[in-house]
């Protein structure tokens, strides 16, 4: 992966003592009700509280710091903050305040906006049971960061994903595309995993120089957000991050979606397959495979002649490639 992407952060020459360049923090909050239901230890409400404090802390640490917040639900991802001027929070229960009026006005503005929009997001959320929209949300965040960076040169940025779902709800390819885009943009992706461990998100954090943490004490989320995930991008080369070092780099099968230990790669479109395709063409790009190659792959393992061979679809580091076979090995 490193070979494809540019090296991350090779331009972030850390400044000596004081670094005044503004930083952008983009938070993606998963809102899938089913996901939250599966985590009885904490609620979306509690997490939102912690998140707001973290946002305020980020805004407080530098006057020109920026934040953006996205909600990633089961149907759609949308911006909670910032929002276009005309759809300002006023349209929704204009008068009610969700945070203390004593709060510093900048914080209050952001917090109110986030909470109102989040509320609206939950109210309108339908019953879709597709894969989560996390990849879409990440794309939106990256696009927004790109726009901000066009306006403010030298804006540092990082993305924080507050995730509650595991790999089964994450589309592999779009997430990988997001990872590559983030690498190009030198934006790190931090992952705060409240739900079951996700190897794809681990890969995302590892490839972009971000922090991945499985949160063991969700009630103390604020502590994680303001310490482990609070390290500025420019400081990361100098800090020991609380990230996990043993990242699971296995890819997922394009057809079944399962994690692949040993699989097959299409020589044309490079899609990863767990089993030899039933018909002799690639299920993703439709390229025809050589019948001979496929039949060889279907042969099954070689066992001592006396005891006869058997035909068992054993996964092996081979390829049903029509052109040039390439092996995927994972150790």
């Amino acid at each position: 992966m490193d070979a494809i992407a540019e090296s991350v952060f090779d331009n972030t020459m850390p400044h000596a003592a004081v670094d005044d360049t503004p930083s952008h923090l983009s938070v993606i909050l998963e809102t899938s009700a089913a996901g939250w239901l599966a985590i009885p230890q904490t609620t979306l409400k509690q997490v939102s509280e912690a998140l707001l404090v973290a946002l305020n802390a980020h805004l407080a640490s530098n006057t020109s710091n920026q934040v953006s917040v996205l909600a990633s639900g089961v149907q759609r991802s949308e911006f909670l903050f910032p929002t276009p001027e005309d759809t300002h929070a006023k349209h929704h229960n204009g008068t009610s305040t969700l945070v203390s009026s004593k709060l510093y006005s900048l914080f209050r503005h952001v917090d109110e906006e986030v909470l109102h929009r989040l509320d609206a997001h939950i109210q309108t959320e339908g019953n879709g049971c597709d894969k989560g929209t996390l990849a879409g949300g990440t794309s939106m965040a990256l696009a927004y960061i790109r726009r901000c960076q066009a306006e403010t040169a030298a804006l540092k940025a990082r993305i924080l994903i507050i995730s509650i779902t595991d790999d089964s709800a994450i589309p592999y390819i779009p997430v990988m595309n997001c990872i590559f885009a983030a690498q190009k943009m030198k934006t790190s992706i931090d992952v705060c995993q409240l739900g079951p461990a996700s190897s794809f998100l681990q890969q995302a954090a590892d490839a972009t120089g971000g922090v991945y943490m499985d949160v063991k004490h969700p009630q103390g989320l604020i502590q994680y957000l303001t310490t482990a995930f609070f390290v500025d991008t420019s400081l990361r080369p100098f800090m020991v991050l609380p990230s996990q070092n043993n990242v699971d780099f296995r890819a997922s099968c394009f057809v079944t979606g399962g994690v692949v230990e040993r699989g097959y790669v299409c020589g044309v479109c490079l899609c990863i397959l767990k089993d030899v395709p039933q018909r002799n063409f690639c299920p993703v790009c439709g390229s025809r495979f050589d019948d001979l190659v496929i039949s060889k792959l279907r042969r099954g393992p070689v066992v001592t002649r006396k005891k006869k061979r058997k035909t068992d679809a054993l996964q092996t580091p081979l390829t049903p490639a029509a052109e040039q076979p390439e092996a995927v090995t994972d150790d």
């Binding site: 939102s48 509280e49 707001l52 109102h116 939950i122 004490h217 009630q219 103390g220 502590q223 310490t227």
Partner: peptide, 25 residues
């Protein structure tokens, strides 16, 4: 969830969350 005002100070003042924050630390 978001019909009443949130008390952000509770994050550290509530005993259970405080303990949890220490664990997180």
């Amino acid at each position: 969830y978001f019909t009443t005002e949130l008390d952000l100070t509770e994050l550290y003042s509530a005993p259970s969350r405080k303990r949890s924050a220490e664990e997180a630390f």
